[in-house]
Computed example of a mutant assay.
Amino acid sequence: MGFATRLERGEEIDLVRSLTAGNRSVLDVGGGSGELARAVAARIGHCTAVEPHAQLVESIQAGDTTGVVNVFAGTAEELPFRDASFDAVYCAWVLPYVSDIGHAVTEMVRVCDPDHPESKVVLIAGGSGNELLTLLNEVCVPVAGEPYDHHGYLLSTAAEALAEHGFTDFALHRTEASIRFDEVGRAERVATAAAVLTDFWYGPHPKAEEIRSALEPALARHFAGRPHGIGDQATVLVARPGA
């Protein structure tokens, strides 16, 4: 929550709302905090979300004070809905966490009605120049001994799966977002950012403290040029059925 409460993603939310403005039945795959689902529901009247973590399902339900978001427990790889149940499906920042991208995308296509005039699948992942992913890959991954996080590869793999199922009309968009650190002193900002990012990416990791220490000098250099924000730029892939 330390990460989520500091994240500003207004442009991303506005784009998803614009893309789904002509839809009537929209699915959010990986509901997370429910922020996107509530924004879509505010525009078209309702939104359905699927989320694998029980505590987030409860959080989305608690935050939906108007009853316009229907949330179900489930995963991207096994969506609990009938074929062609929705006329639009979107999935934001979930691809790095699925076990099988091809299967997850196939499920999204399965529940999306290709005959609807506004049919689309929208995938959101890290974009070129994403400052958070740069910190993750350059500082944290070598310490953790884990694979690099390559969102371009994830989107490319997803696009291949979409094309195999007839969603061949592609468009790409870029959005700007950032995680904000409003602390006045740079030293406090650095320490806070290192703690927030370590907790978000590596909370239970055995090398979490070593990762936090490695982040601090990198964050000090970053804040020297951009004092209060770390960019979380996204690439948005929109796929529609081909002619």
Rank of each mutant, 00 (worst) to 15 (best):
Leu19Cys: 02
Glu138Arg: 08
Val40Cys: 05
Asp113Gln: 02
Ser128Pro: 13
Leu7Gly: 11
Ala218Trp: 10
His46Met: 13
Asp182Phe: 11
Gly31Tyr: 00
Gly10Phe: 11
Asp113Tyr: 05
His205Trp: 04
Phe81Pro: 00
Phe223Arg: 09
Ile44Glu: 00
Arg240Gly: 06
Ile211Leu: 10
Gly145Ala: 12
Val89Gln: 01
Val143Gln: 02
Glu58Pro: 15
Asp199Cys: 14
Asp14Glu: 11
Thr175Ala: 13
Ala39Val: 08
Cys140Arg: 09
Phe167Leu: 14
Glu210Gly: 07
Ala195Cys: 14
Thr175His: 07
Ala144Glu: 14
His165Ser: 08
Pro206Asp: 14
His205Val: 13
Glu209Asp: 13
Asn23Ser: 07
Ala214Pro: 00
Thr157Phe: 10
Glu183Asp: 15
Ser18Trp: 12
Phe86Arg: 00
Val50His: 00
Glu146Pro: 05
Gln61Trp: 06
Ala92Asp: 01
Val236Ile: 13
Asn130Trp: 06
Val122Gly: 00
Val89His: 02
His151Pro: 14
Asp182Glu: 15
Ala224Gly: 15
Val69Ser: 11
Arg24Glu: 10
Leu136Met: 14
Gly225Ala: 07
Ile211Met: 12
Thr198Glu: 15
Pro96Trp: 11
Arg240Glu: 07
Arg226Ala: 13
Phe200Glu: 13
Val57Arg: 01
Phe167Ile: 04
Ala62Met: 07
Lys207Leu: 15
Thr5Ser: 14
Asp232Met: 14
Cys112Thr: 14
Leu132Ala: 13
Thr5Tyr: 13
Arg226Phe: 12
Ala84Asp: 09
Pro217Lys: 06
Glu131Gly: 03
His116Ala: 10
Gly102Ala: 05
Phe72Pro: 04
Thr75Lys: 09
Gly63Thr: 07
Ala191Tyr: 06
Ile124His: 08
Ala239Arg: 00
Val29Lys: 03
Gly45Ala: 05
Thr235Ser: 15
Met1Ala: 15
Pro241Phe: 01
Thr75Leu: 01
Ala104Lys: 03
Pro142Phe: 03
Asn23Ile: 03
Gly102Glu: 08
Ala92Leu: 02
Met108Pro: 07
Leu123Val: 07
